[in-house]
Nucleic acid binder design. Structure first.
Lengths: 199, 199, 199, 199
DNA sequence: GATGAATGAGCTTTCATTCAT
DNA sequence: GATGAATGAAAGCTCATTCAT
């Protein structure tokens, strides 16, 4: 499944052959169909594994009683950024799959994941509104799109960001840490500007 | 080329067969190779056509002498949103191609487009900074990623945004207008918060 | 037709596309079908033109009353060698076509050419036999095969003959003259050994 | 590989489709690419198999200590004739490939084969020259061309030889035996005339 | 369970040819 | 007559999948 992630991220689902995956994974070609049933089901399994972890992480934060709404939101932002930076392959796949509803099963899984995340986030925001910390009339969809879209775009096109800012000589790790900080404060600043109650 | 755009947007480059494109376009299968040489060159032609238009549009704004920096920036945002909403297919393709550097020619075209846009925008921001309207220390890359990422994400996943906000009954046109306004004020608010000089 | 000869000789009939011929000849692609009707008919026309010339040449020698049988035969050998060395492209095509009876029309043309040549040569040999210069029991087929096969083989694989005899530095013309002499005396020696009456 | 030989001999490399070969061989079309990788590699494999056998046969004769030089040469001639008559398809392919250096790999294999044969034969002739049986100043290239060219031409155009000598009613086997004898004594006579030392 | 061999479907591309002008 | 555009057919090849062991 890790071999599949790498290839799917790099060349897309259709652009990747099961042979490539088998070779990278060092297993027999027929094994993949034997275990997963088909190429499609392999990807579905991939999504199932990752999404379980994501939802779990989100729920943990919300259940936390020691953090205030804004603090929780910031933690959520940081966790999202970390997830993307740690599993860039999977997220590139997910971003792509989101825009081509080719595989119904996966589209549904992504939707389900988004629904869960959306509901949990909505609860968090409601909590902040009741506490008077967040303003009313927040467009959740735009908010999430800003987080997901901005971070995803930077991660997807990091070579351009590097070129633009003369960061070509940074190692992969250095750059990841650099961009982690930049993204974190950027998104948090946006969220504060949009959410915080000025009264 | 329009037929190709629709299919590439829907199923990806590898997921689309030249047969599909030919059928949609109502032309003979061999015609496509006759005109464009190959499937790859067809996509390259697609990009060449669109990118010429985009750069032209951007330059027109910047040359304008009657608008102030912030006004120009807002116009730029609106134009970007309009372009995406008017040519969603092409932009979905571009977003995808940006993350999989499979075709070197196209990767280079996109980079060139981004460089141009980046330089022009940088000039615009410098103009605002000199006029004292924009603050110093602006991260251009994050700013553009926020615009491109957010708008792109909303457009790519509009079905989810509809579901989330109970907009399922809107026609395609109604939704486009609705989201156009929402996105415009959302992004402008973000830009103002990030750029405006508080002193 | 000359462009066709070059290509057919180089890459075979099936390996040559009408486009290649059209380009080399500097004419429109459709012209070739317009004039010749089809790719096959183009080759047929090629054969028709060349074979007319060949038969004519042969008849001229035989009609000559001043030469004796052996002298005629030697002239015939020299003419054959010259023809091959002057029109190597066409002869390479002919040798190839002789072994793959793909095009019935051409097979027939070649057969006809061979029959004519065979009959004329047979007459020449009979002339010599009557004059007591040539022995009886001559296998015409083997005799012609020796001429045609040997010369054809040398011409077809001249690069190997060059390598074998360290003639790599000769120009095309120098080599042609060199091999012309060698072949001429070689074949004549063979013919003499086989034909001459020892009594 | 046998199916391929038949078709390549009949219609040439370019004139043969992998589909035809697959059908004749009674295997799936994809199998051929599965095993050989490509149409070209199939032919290369064909050549590799045959050439190994040919060189082996030649070396066996030369190592023989009981035969004199002329006897060895005659054996060599007979073996060559037998090989051509037994594997006419392969040899027709080889003759054709020799004149169109389209596939570099195969051209090189043929050259290698010819070099080996040439060297072995040269040694044989030197042996005869030392023993005083063969005359000096023998043109090896012409000698081999006479053997290879004559035999190849007869085999390639046997239908014409049949017609010329009224042998149309012979079975394939009968004709093969007939021509075997004829060719054998014809070539041997030539070789003797050219090589034998008259002093 | 694990795997080399095999296969049908489908891919992109090229071809000889014809059509409309 | 001459030609750019167009096309049906067929080419070589790759793919995901299944079969036999």
């Amino acid at each position: 499944m890790e071999a599949a992630e790498i290839h799917f991220a790099d060349r897309g689902f259709e652009g990747t052959s099961v042979r490539d995956i088998a070779e990278t994974a060092g297993v027999n070609l027929a094994m993949i169909n034997y275990y997963f049933g088909s190429k499609e089901k392999l990807m579905e399994a991939m999504f199932a594994r990752r999404s379980a972890y994501m939802t779990l992480q989100l729920e943990t934060i919300l259940a936390n009683r020691e953090m205030g709404p804004m603090e929780k939101l910031e933690t959520l932002v940081d966790q999202y950024i970390n997830r993307l930076l740690n599993q860039p392959c999977f997220h590139r796949i997910m971003i792509r799959e989101q825009m081509m509803n080719s595989n119904h099963m996966i589209t549904e899984q992504i939707l389900q994941m988004k629904r869960t995340n959306s509901n949990l986030t909505r609860a968090l925001i409601a909590e902040g509104q009741e506490a008077g910390v967040f303003r009313q009339n927040v467009d959740m969809g735009l908010l999430m799109a800003t987080l997901v879209g901005t971070v995803g775009h930077i991660v997807s096109t990091q070579h351009f960001y590097r070129e633009m800012n003369d960061l070509g000589e940074m190692t992969e790790d250095e750059f990841r840490n650099h961009i982690r900080g930049k993204l974190s404060s950027h998104i948090k600043a946006i969220f504060k500007a949009i959410l915080s109650n000025e009264d």
